[in-house]
Design a protein around this nucleic acid. Structure first.
Lengths: 349, 349
DNA sequence: GGCCTTGCCGCAACCGCTTGCAGCGCCTAC
DNA sequence: GTAGGCGCTGCAAGCGGTTGCGGCAAGGCC
């Protein structure tokens, strides 16, 4: 097998302690000595055994990331963002997907990360008070993404404001009937973002004195196919909306497909705005609310560094990152009444 | 912090050695003793420190997975499949994304997984002989996914045969000009699957005595937008193809969008068949070659178990998993010449 | 010249678990 | 009755690093 630290020590003519210090760049090693150690290590092709280091040092140099539904685009992006900065700092990432049935309960019952991570970032999982207690008593530093008002450091966006901006964009285009594609992804987890985006939609409507019609709020399950079905449901209405605010780009893409299949022109007959700025949103020309997904992960990682270093004390920052409206080609002025009538006829045919 | 094994030993009134054996289910522990140990462990909420275990036992209970471009659907699915069976066996997974510039060279130069994994699965990365040497001399067990003819155990599909089947499907529908969307994803890695699928396409054409026209073979870069551009390129031809075999579903989706935007009816005017059976292929009604992605990962994991247990000896199996044609609604009979002419006119207008 | 500081380095005790080996009690066989 | 075997348990030596502490030499100071 590979060389061990004592081999390096022997070759460099120093003690293992000195090798350890030299290799980790600690200050109290004379330069010539460090040089000898480094070249000995290089010649022997030495790499430290991480398990031995972790055991001796008591730090694991590993962080856990728990996500619901790893398969969703948003989560993979956040993970990728965090991973890049963690890796740069020498940390490994352990992934916990809590999406499966019972996986979440099992996770909080077993705390499988104990003794294996220095910290843990929880992505977009609304924690019950009880779950927060469990995590807090365990003592490992926690930071969350997209979970405001918890007892942990957090980074996220202002979903309400972003949804308001999106809806206002449609209202400014003189749309008066603006539908909402929302709901919850299938599975046991309940996310808070959909609710917040719904609130923003309601607020924007209220600002203009428009009542939020119940029949314009449909569940798209945060999936492409769900969005398509939800759009079909909207088109079946006696007076379908002329604009749709979708809580995610995936649902918006599904909606666009239904519209295309039904012969409804976008944006001439119906405007669509999404949320996320998914990779392919640009390709489909989807107007959407951009949120800095990768950056969410990056910030989470650095917050975690602080938490690990800083111990328990200090304030728990709540970082909110900006969102921006990306105007593309799926939103346009509301159709004049005559055109609307024409569209309805086309959709029926 | 959490309890350690000696705490459990004290509480159960036995030695740490017995605790270790009892907790791991080794046979040589009397049942009553085991019971006492188990309840002591439960009461103390004890979990073993994995680093200490790994260090003492010499096994890391971790495997590495190296993938090019984690962001591509295929790879995430393979990883997920492997992860599920590895996790069930108590293994952690360390992910190495070798997509970035220089990342691959760095990976093979540094071998960052040394001393941290018991084995490693390499997904769809054509290894140079030199790289194979490096891995082999390092000694950690390796299994590959989608890499035939290497010195390691492998699991994959028969890309040539699958591509032949896909192309034959189009030929059976009386198409005579069948285009190929192929190419390589952007980045430094060269994959072998595209080449094999191209070969299958050529073979199927040759069977029917049809020459593979150069202008019908376009590069879609294995992305949605690339597929869209490639399709546009095909439509610009004087005599565009009536059928397209796409090397991936992502490219096929892009192609479908271009066709829709150009007013070309699918499959009446142009048939499209994909490859992979991507999550959303069903939603878009895309006819495609299904490959068992998750199963590739699962099989890879169990092959790796064998390799870890079996030491170096024994044969290196090469498992090939079946692919199946999923007929949906984007392929149909070749248009009769008159219809073709009509389409061409429509495309130009 | 004696004393104290300062900078480097080695000693050795861990970190928490695994495992070969030996010990011990008890049963079976002769 | 004694030897041998078997089942269970404990002892203790690691696994390969990290780190507090103490030693030693060189240099500065009075």
């Amino acid at each position: 097998m590979g060389a061990s630290i004592s081999d390096v020590a022997a070759r460099a003519g120093v003690s293992v302690a000195t090798v350890s210090r030299a290799l980790r760049g600690l200050p109290n090693v004379a330069e010539p000595t460090r040089g000898r150690v480094l070249s000995a290590a290089r010649e022997l092709d030495y790499v430290a055994n991480p398990n031995a280091s972790r055991l001796a040092a008591g730090r694991t140099m590993t962080v856990g990331m728990v996500v619901p539904l790893l398969s969703r685009w948003f989560f993979t992006q956040v993970v990728a963002g965090a991973q890049s900065v963690l890796a740069a700092a020498g940390y490994d990432v352990l992934l916990y997907d809590v999406g499966g049935a019972g996986a979440r309960d099992r996770f909080f019952r077993r705390l499988p990360f104990r003794k294996r991570v220095d910290g843990i970032v929880i992505v977009d999982l609304p924690l019950t008070a009880c779950e927060q207690d469990v995590l807090e008593t365990d003592g490992t530093p926690v930071v969350t993404v997209g979970l405001t008002g918890s007892r942990f450091s957090n980074v996220g966006i202002d979903n309400v404001a972003a949804a308001r901006t999106a809806t206002r964009h449609l209202l400014n285009l003189r749309h008066t009937s603006v539908a909402l594609l929302s709901g919850q992804p299938v599975g046991s987890v309940r996310f808070s973002a959909p609710l917040q985006r719904r609130r923003g939609w309601q607020q924007a409507l209220a600002e203009r004195g428009i009542a939020a019609r119940d029949d314009l709020e449909v569940d798209g399950g945060f999936s492409i196919s769900g969005g398509a079905q939800a759009m079909a449901q909207l088109l079946a209405l006696g007076d379908p909306p002329t604009a749709v605010f979708s809580g995610s780009d995936e649902m918006a893409l599904g909606a666009l497909k239904t519209l295309a299949d039904s012969g409804v022109r976008v944006p001439a007959d119906c405007s669509v705005i999404g949320f996320d700025d998914h990779d392919v949103a640009g390709f489909f020309g989807l107007t959407t609310m951009h949120q800095p997904v990768a950056q969410l992960g990056e910030v989470a990682a650095s917050l975690l560094f602080d938490a690990i270093r800083g111990g328990g004390g200090g304030p728990r920052p709540d970082v909110v990152l900006p969102t921006t409206l990306r105007m593309r080609s799926t939103t346009g002025p509301a159709p004049v009444p005559a055109a609307t009538a024409g569209r309805r006829a086309a959709a029926i045919s």
